[in-house]
Design a protein around this nucleic acid. Structure first.
Lengths: 168, 168
DNA sequence: ATATATTTTCAATAAGTTTTGAAAATTCAA
DNA sequence: TTGAATTTTCAAAACTTATTGAAAATATAT
């Protein structure tokens, strides 16, 4: 397979992959393009390579920057802004975990804590099932929360090394 | 907070939560409703409680069954079909992991393996960055794959017990 | 067999999301 | 300043996905 074809495949698949994870197709594609670009590239480069509008590139690069996955890079002597993605996949993964935890898991756990304190007779079947379910999810979520915190703080080699021992 | 209000909150939040995970809102809401229902319920119950059409309920319960999260239950003497969700959150989580791994991670790893074998000069900057990026993702994905396999096979108490030791 | 209850399907429609593109805002050099 | 280059914004349009509802299929009782 030629590089050009492989690139196109990767960008397209990464985009499709993203949609399964609540990330919009274009944002994932721009990310893919930046991941395989050895040097920082401009809005116009992205527009051209993905055949999308300027506004679209602008919005999605902004989102990628908000996610901490992409940086604006200033190149001396150049008027245009350049963009560059973090290439270390471990860092990419921990950054995504960190953000999603903050945006999704933490608020959900907060809500579950509130919901568990409903008034009502615990002997009532409906009340019991509700409390049990909420409790179960909260407990599980709490465990996940802890594990993810360790991952976020950990360094890749330490983490994978420890896992290897763990799953020996 | 009263049970009725708490239920509504949970269903609505679980639905919103689902959309961040590539699961459609209604499917997640039906799942939430089933999770907090002590006894199996019918299509009509779901239609009524969530105010959605019969077709919608039918499609989404079928998807939940495909995902292995919900079962059809036959109740002797009843003409209608009843639905019931797996209540053990650990089982729910491992089932979801199992399915998503099969549907998303495995095909992605397969593709990455192909893409890594492109022809071209490894000294070319473009080629090098492409191969490095793909290689990095493949390696990371491979590790994740192994960890998830262990989780899927594991029993909750064993898994959490081991994690506790791990994160002592 | 026939009637009735129940479930499934799927084309049409509605709702939601993403993309465009041109105008407005900003930046920067001269 | 002024004006050209560049980025940002956002309403309208295009696209995608979810939902409805009624007709067809299936299951069950009499």
């Amino acid at each position: 397979m030629k590089l050009t074809e492989a690139k196109a495949q990767f960008i397209s698949s990464w985009g499709a992959f993203g949609t399964h994870w609540g990330i919009n197709r274009t944002m994932a594609q721009i990310h893919a393009l930046l991941l395989i670009s050895p040097d920082p590239i401009t809005q116009d480069d992205i527009m051209e390579q993905l055949s999308i509008s300027r506004g679209n590139v602008n919005m999605n690069t902004r989102d990628l920057i908000d996610w901490g996955l992409v940086d604006r890079v200033l190149i001396p002597g150049e008027r245009k802004e350049f963009f560059s993605a973090e290439k270390d996949i471990w860092k990419v993964a921990t950054q995504i975990i960190k953000e999603r935890k903050k945006r999704e898991l933490d608020p959900m756990l907060k809500l579950l804590n509130q919901l568990e304190q409903i008034d009502g007779d615990k002997k009532d079947k409906e009340v019991k099932q509700f409390v049990d379910t909420i409790g179960g999810i909260r407990k599980f979520g709490g465990q996940a929360d802890k594990v993810l915190d360790v991952m976020i703080k950990a360094d890749e080699s330490w983490f994978l090394g420890s896992l290897l021992k763990f799953f020996k």
